[in-house]
Simulated assay, not measured.
Amino acid sequence: MTSKIFKKESAIVEDSRALLARPELFADAEAREGFSRLLEAYEKQMRSTQKLLRLSDRNEAQLNELARDLEGKNSRLEELSDKLSRYLAPQIYKAIFEGAQDVSLATRRKKLTVFFSDLKGFTETSETLQPEALTYLLNDYFSEMSTIAIDHGATIDKFIGDAMLMFFGDPHSDGDRADAAKCVRMAVRMQQRMKDLRARWRNEGFERPFSMRIGINTGYCNVGNFGSTKRMDYTIIGAEVNLAARLESQADPDGILMSYETYALVRDFVETEERSAMRVKGIAREIRPFAVTNIYDPDLSRRSFIRKERYGLKLLADLERLQGEDRRQAIAELEEVIHDLKTLPESGRPVAGDETS
């Protein structure tokens, strides 16, 4: 590459040397000596420039090789980072990689709204299922609930068997009232989705699908990194966490039971039924539980999964999956069925004067 760049200059040098070989072209010896020194300086400059260019070519090749190596390492790092993110709550993962969260053994007390849930009858139902079927149901359940949790901004603490522990208020908080509201809306959305999942699971052949119970409490907890310098866990502990678990154990199947501390923050948009007071170990105050019976939120009143079955009718529709052209075709097919139902008498013969397919 360097020789090509200096082709013109090399020709000039050769021509100049040919001129020096002809003394008669110069006025005197001094003029010829001056031209010789000038040519020598020119050649020296050209050699120096060629050397720099060769060095530049080598550096460019090395830089290109380093860039390719760096690109490969970045790709592997992104892949590893993506895998690691599956083991951490999105908020914690983001806080650590942005430098906002220290990876050290440190905790603090904060007011959090704590969510605890489990599946009623899990042990009994799991005994009747093959391990593959149980794994499928649990993974399906956790995947659906995690999606809802992340959509509402929950920090997913851990999965414990069939139970889930989540909280609102750390590492980011929108304020006590907003945190509690997001938690309750999330819980209602989860119970709604569980109805859809049970309908789907029954349609797939599972005779006794699970029911979920949820307990919610708002109070001060210790939150942060617990464990050792070699292995730590970002989690929450304290009596208020235990209270959320106790409330869950007292909740109705498919129900949500919350403490008065949470109820006081969300009473403007939920309808509740107060249950009998109870005592919890580690908490001096009497606990007043409230069961959620209704929520005044149009966005949460919509169902995404419809299952209707009676003699002569079987309807199963997943509204979230029916999008675009699939939804338009489904509407057309349902309208055709409705038309047939309206025009066919109970005997099954068409009404006089009407044509049916």
Rank of each mutant, 00 (worst) to 15 (best):
D318P: 06
A29V: 14
L88V: 04
V337R: 12
D176H: 03
S146G: 08
D118C: 06
D102F: 00
Q130M: 14
F116K: 02
V13E: 08
Q91C: 09
Y141H: 15
L341F: 06
V13K: 05
A245C: 04
Y220R: 09
A21C: 07
V280A: 11
I12A: 10
G324K: 10
F115R: 06
M166D: 02
E78L: 13
L316V: 08
V270P: 06
F97V: 14
M145Q: 05
K111W: 00
R58C: 06
D252Y: 02
E127I: 01
E320T: 09
A352D: 13
S259I: 09
P253K: 13
G312R: 04
R200W: 00
I150E: 14
L247A: 07
G99W: 05
E333V: 07
T155V: 03
L243T: 00
T218F: 10
M164D: 01
M164S: 03
P90T: 04
M232N: 10
G99D: 05
W201D: 10
L25Y: 05
Q101L: 15
D297G: 05
E78W: 00
I12Y: 03
G255H: 01
D318E: 13
D15Q: 14
R86K: 15
L257A: 09
K308G: 13
A41D: 13
G324I: 11
I160F: 03
I156F: 01
A149Y: 01
T356S: 06
H152A: 13
G255S: 04
G169L: 12
F305M: 11
P345E: 11
S347N: 13
M278R: 01
K281V: 08
R68H: 09
L300Q: 10
R22I: 14
